[in-house]
Design a protein around this nucleic acid. Sequence first.
DNA 1: CCGCATGCGGAAATCTCTCG
DNA 2: CGAGAGATTTCCGCATGCGG
Length: 202
Amino acid sequence: MSTIFDESAATTRLAARLRAEREARGWTLADLATRSGVSRAMVSKVERGEASPTAALLGRLSAAYGLTLSQLFAQVEGGGRVTRVSEQPVWRDPETGFLRRSLSPPGGAPMELVWGELPPGAKVAYPAPAYSHIADQQVVVLDGVLVITQGNVAHDLASGDCLRFGPPQDTTFHNPGAVPCRYLVAVLRAADGTDARPTPVV
DNA sequence: CCGCATGCGGAAATCTCTCG
DNA sequence: CGAGAGATTTCCGCATGCGG
C-alpha cells in the first residue's frame, strides 16, 4: 500500500545522507558534534536512524555542514526537470507534526522551493545558524494563518501574505489558527564557491 | 496531578585501526 | 600478536509534553 510518501524511508534516506556528508568531509562524530552543538550520542543515533531529529536539531546539523535544509533533504540522484509529488523528499518533525516537502528538482540550482504544512497550534523553531548559508528567503502563506518571529519581531501572515526574511536570526514558525497552515518557501542559497570550509557556528 | 512516551546528553563499554 | 589510541555504540538518567 503506497501512500504519497514513506516517512520511514525518508528517515532512512536522511540518516544515510547525514552520514555521507560527514564522511565526505572526513569528520568524526566528535567533529560534527563540536561544530553543530549536538552530542556525539545523538548524532550517532540520528545517523543510524534510531532517533528522529527535531527541526531545531536538523537545523544545527545542516548549518554545521554549510547546507540548507533543502540540500540536506534533496535526493542525490536525479537530474530531471520535473519532480512528481511522489518523488519529493518529505520530512515530518516528530515534535510538532510539521510537514516539510522539498519541491525543487535536484540538480544544484541556487533557488529552491519548499512546501510547508504546520498543524493547528504547532510551533517550529530554527536556530539562526540554519539560515547562515541562505542569501534570500521568502514565504507566502497559501492557507490558514502563520506567525513568523525573527529575533523579537513577530510577523502575522494570512493567506496570500508574503514575508521576506532578514539576516540570520533565531526564527519561529507558529500556526495560531484552528486549521492547518500551508505555505510556500522560496530559498536562494548563498553563492559560496568552495564549500571546503563551512562557516564556523557560534 | 500523575504516568507514559520521547528527545536528548553524559559516561561507560565496545569496536577498529595502527604501530612496534 | 599485543598494546594503545581513537572512534563509535550502548546504557542510563533527566527534561518536557501530552493525555487521562
